[in-house]
Nucleic acid binder design. Structure first.
Length: 761
DNA sequence: CGCCCTCGAGTTCC
DNA sequence: CTCGAGGGCG
């Protein structure tokens, strides 16, 4: 009874038609549900089921009055169109750094020893386990009972898939407390995957009833877990290996291996190939062994994960921005494929960057059909890197360029992003010409220039360029920026094409200007009364917004998510920041002028064969009349004094905010907003919050990097040199001029032990 | 001044 | 996910 989704647009339905269709849909969906509950061979495919459900929701959205008592969207276990609810991870789900070569594994070990201040010969044990190719899942247990399951998402926020996780046999609903009691809170993390055998059987079933088959076990696992209807997930043979944890009310063990054993005792499957290794040589040997067994394991793996075994050391090593320092994934070599390059297209990004994209004859690489691949930039096509070195040598060591018509080798970097790696010159068509990278923007015709030392060529059209304007708008509504529900990349693009939204401020004027017309106009494009009013509500909700989001959303060059956050944390309010940025303008312009003069001096000196007088050149420019006002200098110094912000970022920020057109657009936007002040770092109770600390001499209990990371976590600012702003100098043995200077300035000086006592370490 | 780490920006497929 | 570039440290 495979019912096709009716194809009449929802917007064109009459009320009578809608009522009939809702009745038919309720019938079909309920039959399909019964089929899933009672047998393993449903009558309609998941895709069809989903399509019917979506159709049902769309109609109900358009005709809310016609919603049936037995509406399929109200059924238990059937979340609504928005999909899964969002879940914030109590402890961030990190990703792992990668290594491809044995050498990089040794570097990893070396880095850890250096960070911990351990000698090359001190004993350091790691665990090594296969890296399962599935999707990670975080399971929250409270007093031993499963209360929530969440996907990784962006690491901070995932999707709530609790109902689906409950259908997986390997995931206990209730933990086994026999061995050592149950923790109050335990978040277990691991990988959901599908075995080769189950994958093949599933695809056979799908094919038998005309459903779409999955490209690989990972996609099958992901597709199965993320079913809106948990009963579909139940019918899918998913498995789970536990290998990590998030929030914990009590430690699981003292070592990684101990924790894995504890997870096993609690009732989880853990990977049998997990093993302890003493140092990189044993790790690499275990990697080779696992690689040999790869084909016979019965499930996909894409490498081996190494972790420092001692959990206390893991704690000391801590995290970089997205990855732990104490773990790394040693990946298997990527799968390669050859195909023909049909053409090269140029895309224009939000900063005007011209990016070449390869259009390929579709080819399967690692279980996925690839038809586009990145070519990076002008030099990459020519076969060179940014420094001009040959990256793709032919037999004589000359660079092999890439031409339309060539046979090219493609792989998926990190098993994700398709890249063109190599060219087969023996198969090059005779008529193939070297690729001429455009010097004119293909979107707006403006000149595209490449700044010295820059790898990318950029369109100079600014907001005149439709591609840049649209990309900027997409950035504005992106997740870390305004993140407006119902206003994604597609919608923004459409509004731009309609001429309704040309710059961010227009979004907040949509309702006033087009609200009335929109409901009718947009019906044909899938906008109903409901979705339009939902959108206006979502936009209104976002008028109140955090400072860092606004800064990031503006899309200024060099100001990404992190820098925007740093700026917000420093200035705390929009008005304070604007004031500072305006004040710093003369200094920023002078800095730029000085740098240009230095560049000229360098060239002149090189030509004349003498040493460049850099300091003198800089000083001369700064001394030029009119001199830069003291308040401009201090605003500038304050700005570049922020950790992570240097002159390049500062110049970009100050000048772009003071560009006339840009500023007008920003002012228009801000008038619509209620920008929330940033909170001072939440370090209440920390004795060093807001203090500036300098470390000098030899630290004996920890390394400098560690000391810095810990101090910053407590809200302190760590600086490299002593000034009158310094509050505390931590001096180890061998401290020299810094200690003298601190003494002169009357700054508090303490040794490492006193510091540790102060911060409660 | 050079090295290492982090951040920004651009990318593909589902 | 990767590359290039910016920033900080030795």
């Amino acid at each position: 009874m495979a019912q096709k989704v009716a194809d009449k647009p929802v917007g064109d339905l009459t009320e009578a038609e809608a009522r009939d269709e809702l009745a038919r849909l309720a019938e079909s969906l309920s039959q399909a549900n019964v089929a899933y509950h009672t047998e393993d061979a449903p009558e309609i495919s998941d895709a069809e089921y989903d399509a019917l459900k979506q159709r049902n929701i769309a109609i109900e959205d358009r005709f809310p009055a016609l919603k049936r008592e037995d509406s399929p969207t109200e059924q238990v276990g059937a979340p609504l169109a928005e999909g899964f609810s969002k879940v914030r991870h109590a402890v961030r789900m990190m990703s792992l750094g990668n290594a491809f070569e044995a050498e990089e594994v040794k570097d990893f070990d070396g880095r850890i020893r250096r960070y911990l201040g351990m000698s090359q010969f001190a004993e350091l044990t790691y665990t090594a386990e296969p890296k399962i190719d599935g999707l990670s899942l975080s399971l929250r247990y409270e007093n031993g009972t499963l209360v929530q399951a969440a996907t990784r998402g962006d690491g901070t926020e995932g999707e709530n898939v609790t109902a689906n996780a409950r259908t997986i046999d390997d995931i206990p609903q209730q933990l086994d407390g026999a061995a050592g009691g149950l923790p109050e809170v335990l978040e277990v993390r691991g990988e959901v995957y599908m075995s080769h055998a189950d994958f093949a059987a599933l695809n056979e079933r799908q094919a038998a009833r005309g459903g779409k088959s999955f490209a690989n076990p990972r996609n099958a696992a992901a597709g199965s877990l993320r079913q809106l209807d948990a009963e579909i997930t139940r019918a899918r043979p998913l498995k789970f290996f536990a290998y990590a944890w998030g929030e914990l009310s009590a430690p699981l063990a003292e070592t990684q291996m101990g924790a894995i054993e504890r997870l096993q005792a609690l009732g989880f499957q853990t990977n049998p190939l997990t093993q302890l290794c003493d140092g990189p040589d044993e790790m690499i040997a275990h990697y080779r062994q696992i690689e040999e067994q790869r084909a016979t394991l019965g499930y996909d793996i894409d490498g081996v994960v190494y972790k420092v075994n001692d959990l206390a050391l893991q704690g000391r090593l801590g995290f970089r921005s997205t990855t732990p320092r104490w773990a790394i994934a040693h990946k298997f070599p990527a799968e390669l494929a050859w195909t023909r390059l049909e053409g090269i297209d140029i895309q224009v990004g939000r900063t005007g960057a011209l990016s070449p994209v390869a259009r390929l004859t579709p080819v399967t690489v690692g279980g996925v059909v690839v038809s586009n691949a990145t070519l990076h930039n002008e030099d990459y096509i020519a076969g060179r890197d940014a420094k001009g070195e040959v990256i793709r040598p032919d037999a004589e060591g000359n660079a092999k360029d890439i031409r339309t018509g060539d046979w090219v080798q493609v792989y998926r970097a990190g098993d994700v992003i398709p890249k063109v790696a190599d060219v087969d010159l023996s198969k090059r068509p005779e008529e193939a010409q070297p690729y001429a990278f455009p010097h004119v923007c293909p979107e707006c015709g403006s000149e595209a220039i490449r700044e010295e030392g820059d790898a990318v060529r950029r369109c100079t059209g600014g907001l005149i360029c439709p591609a840049q304007a649209v990309e900027k708008l997409k950035h504005f509504v992106s997740r870390a920026a305004f993140d407006i529900d119902g206003l994604g990349a597609k919608q923004v693009e459409q509004f731009y094409r309609d001429g309704w939204v040309k710059e961010p401020a227009d979004i907040f004027e949509l309702k006033a200007r087009y609200g009335a017309g929109m409901q009718q106009l947009k019906n044909r494009e899938g906008w109903g009364d409901k979705s339009a009013s939902n959108l206006f509500d979502a936009i209104d909700e976002r008028r109140k917004i955090e400072l860092k989001r606004v800064l990031f959303a503006l899309g200024m060059r060099h100001v990404g998510e992190v820098v925007a956050g740093d700026l917000a944390k420093h200035y705390l309010s929009w008005s304070a920041m604007i004031e500072a940025v305006d004040a710093a303008l003369p200094a920023a312009e002078r800095y730029r002028k000085a740098e240009a003069a230095v560049e000229d001096e360098r060239k002149a000196a090189a030509a004349e064969g003498r040493r460049a007088r850099i300091k003198e050149t800089q000083d001369a420019v700064w001394a030029e009349e009119p001199t830069v006002p003291a308040e401009a200098k201090s605003a500038w110094n304050d700005l570049v004094g922020i950790d992570g912000i240097g002159a390049t970022v500062a110049v970009s920020l100050v000048t772009s905010m003071n560009q006339e057109a840009e500023r007008a657009s920003i002012d228009r936007l801000v008038a619509h907003l209620d920008i929330q002040d940033a909170e001072r770092p939440a370090t209440e109770g920390s004795p060093v919050a807001g203090k500036t600390v300098v470390f000098t001499g030899t630290l004996e209990k920890m390394t400098r990097a560690e000391a810095k990371a810990r101090a910053e976590a407590l809200g302190a600012k760590v600086s490299g040199s002593v000034s009158k702003k310094t509050d505390i100098l931590v001096a180890g043995p061998g401290a020299g001029s810094k200690e003298t200077k601190a003494r002169e300035l009357g700054i508090e000086i303490m040794d490492e032990d006193a510091w540790l006592a102060l911060i409660g370490g």
